[in-house]
């Protein structure tokens, strides 16, 4: 399965990754290889087979509706690249 540079650009936009032209070509080639290898799975007959997203038989795991103390404010932004007055500062949303 060969994928195009346009596919790579589209996926990079969804994944929010800036890619150089070289990286685009490298990823195009490598992703094509991996997907080519993965083609074997499309040949498997999975008619009537349920997908497994969990290997656990667990259901109904809940917590009680009890409020706990939140994080001390100084810890909330202590790792933030850019914070102001307890809020996280980001470039404008266009």
């Amino acid at each position: 399965m060969a994928i195009s540079i346009e596919d790579v650009e589209h996926v990079a936009r969804l994944a929010r990754l800036a890619l150089s032209e070289d990286e685009k070509e490298t990823f195009r080639r490598q992703l094509s290889d991996v997907l080519e290898h993965a083609r074997v799975i499309s040949e498997v007959d999975t008619e009537g087979v349920e997908p497994t997203s969990h290997t656990l038989p667990l259901v109904n795991v809940f917590r009680d509706d009890v409020a706990r103390p939140s994080l001390p404010t100084e810890e909330v932004t202590s790792n933030a690249p850019w914070a102001a007055d307890g809020a996280f500062r980001v470039p404008r949303i266009v």
Partner: peptide, 10 residues
């Protein structure tokens, strides 16, 4: 499809 393959492996 991969998740179904997973079922087959299980």
């Amino acid at each position: 499809q991969a998740q179904k393959i997973r079922t087959l492996i299980v």
